[in-house]
């Protein structure tokens, strides 16, 4: 599904990703963990195509296509989805109208007819249940005045509507209480299948109690320094990131 090889990226003059290698196969859930400033969110942004970052080396293959050659919108239409760490508030654009536009642009890209109003409404109602999101929220301006939990649920709702092949969740757990976290995680789990994959970027192990990953990677200083199974996350939770930092520094000496 996704194959990242020796990916390097920087913002302005600062090098952030210093050679990332990662392969995700259909149906797999990968978690990327790491201390603050290790490059987790940068990786998510580079995958989604944010132009603030300059890719200086390496390659990303997504379903046989060179991802780096695609615009952000085409990446989305090819089946990549980024759940934002900080969903943007956009006054004046209704959530429903926005999602309808996104869904139909994707359908057009796939050579399908746009959903008519009734079909769209039916799909929307179905997906709303998944994340327990209210109709009244969707008729409001996109994310404007939403609580932290509402914003994150709205991200998962959009994901459900767009049915991506690869979803990247960038610190989706940040700022959520346990109830909201459970709702969000349930939504994600409902969408898991053998055809689609997830890349869960998180600082804390907490989310991984609910979204159980197949693989866990530790990102530190722009590189993946450890990979393992879900037990690695538990070890990190127990020992903190300092033990990884210490080990990495010992190795490089």
């Amino acid at each position: 599904m996704l194959k990242i090889e020796n990916l390097q990226a920087r913002i302005e003059e600062k090098e952030i990703l210093k050679g990332i290698n990662l392969e995700i196969k259909p149906g797999e859930v990968h978690a990327i963990m790491g201390p603050n400033g290790s490059g987790k969110s940068t990786l998510a942004s580079v995958l989604a195509g944010r132009e603030d970052y300059e890719v200086t080396g390496g390659s990303i293959d997504f379903l046989g296509k060179d991802l780096l050659e695609l615009s952000p919108e085409d990446r989305a239409k090819e089946g990549l989805f980024l759940a934002f760490q900080y969903p943007v508030e956009i006054p004046g654009v209704s959530t429903t109208n926005f999602i309808k536009t996104a869904v139909n642009e994707k359908r057009k890209y796939q050579g399908l007819d746009p959903l008519d109003a009734a079909q769209f409404l039916r799909t929307m109602k179905e997906k709303m249940k998944l994340v327990q999101i209210d109709q009244s929220l969707l008729s409001r301006s996109l994310n404007e005045g939403f609580s932290g939990g509402e914003k994150k649920r709205n991200e998962i709702f959009q994901m459900a509507m767009l049915e991506p092949k690869l979803a990247i969740l960038d610190e989706t757990d940040s700022g959520l209480d346990i109830d909201a976290l459970r709702i969000v995680a349930n939504g994600v789990n409902e969408l898991r299948s053998s055809n689609n994959s997830f890349l869960v970027v998180t600082h804390y192990q907490r989310l991984l109690d609910y979204i159980v990953p197949d693989f866990v990677h530790v990102l530190y200083n722009g590189r993946i320094v450890r990979s393992g199974t879900k037990e690695l996350a538990l070890e990190l939770e127990e020992k903190g990131y300092d033990f990884i930092k210490a080990e990495v520094e010992k190795e490089t000496v």
Binding site: G49, E73, G92, T101
Partner: peptide, 27 residues
């Protein structure tokens, strides 16, 4: 940031601009 958010959902840059400008004009 708003433009990128819309594009990251598969909305073309032209339509994303149009949506944001329309919102700006709505006031």
């Amino acid at each position: 940031d708003a433009l990128f958010y819309l594009r990251a959902r598969g909305i073309s840059i032209e339509n994303a601009q149009a949506l944001l400008l329309h919102a700006f004009a709505m006031d």
